[in-house]
């Protein structure tokens, strides 16, 4: 694109664009704006970077049930801990676990990867011996949080050595 630009020096020392260089740039900018608008109106996240800016753009009703998925672990030191669902922790993000909840419920052995990830990244820490996939449900009343979340165990997995 830069190759077709013809430039000429002005008396002030300003560098101006040639007709083609300017025209192409304006068209590229307009096309980009068009793609962005199209993405926001019709596309999904799949169209990144031209997809909709949909983070936190959803509607949550005043009586909604808010779910939160987590994994707890029994360790070989006899303690029960929350598994850190991030890259540094067990090497897997919460969003990935939430996206695959259905699969994990059907096949709890998928949780083995979480225990393996933790053991690989933290060889000196207590190992996980049993994992539970838990969904906490918080129910809103008139848009307010009332009471503690209700936990529900979705899947249990005894870790293979």
């Amino acid at each position: 694109m830069a190759g077709v630009v013809t430039k000429q020096q002005e008396r002030t020392g300003d560098v101006r664009l040639g007709r083609i260089g300017k025209g192409v740039r304006v068209l590229v900018a307009l096309a980009g704006i068009g793609l962005l608008i199209n993405g926001s109106v019709r596309a999904s996240d799949d169209a990144w970077p031209f997809g909709p800016m949909s983070q936190y753009a959803g509607m949550i009703a005043d009586d909604a049930s808010i779910t939160y998925t987590r994994i707890t672990a029994r360790t070989d030191a006899g303690t029960t801990v929350d598994v850190p669902l991030n890259i540094e922790g067990a090497g897997v993000a919460r969003a990935e676990i939430e996206a695959r909840t259905g699969e994990i419920v059907k096949d709890p052995s998928l949780l083995q990867a979480v225990a393996d990830g933790w053991a690989r990244k933290h060889p000196d820490k207590p190992k996980y011996v049993k994992l539970e996939l838990i969904r906490d449900t918080t129910t809103l009343v008139d848009g307010r949080v009332v009471g503690d979340p209700v936990p529900e165990v979705l899947a249990t997995w005894r870790v293979r050595r």
Binding site: S40, V41, P52, M53, S54, Y56, A57, G58, M59, I60, A61, D62, A64, I66, L140, G143, R144, V145
Partner: peptide, 21 residues
Amino acid sequence: VAKLRGAGWTLGWPGSAILTW
């Protein structure tokens, strides 16, 4: 724009419980 779309092209988003969620 995404917030309008998320609320079915209405202005329902700012009054919803999204931040609470």
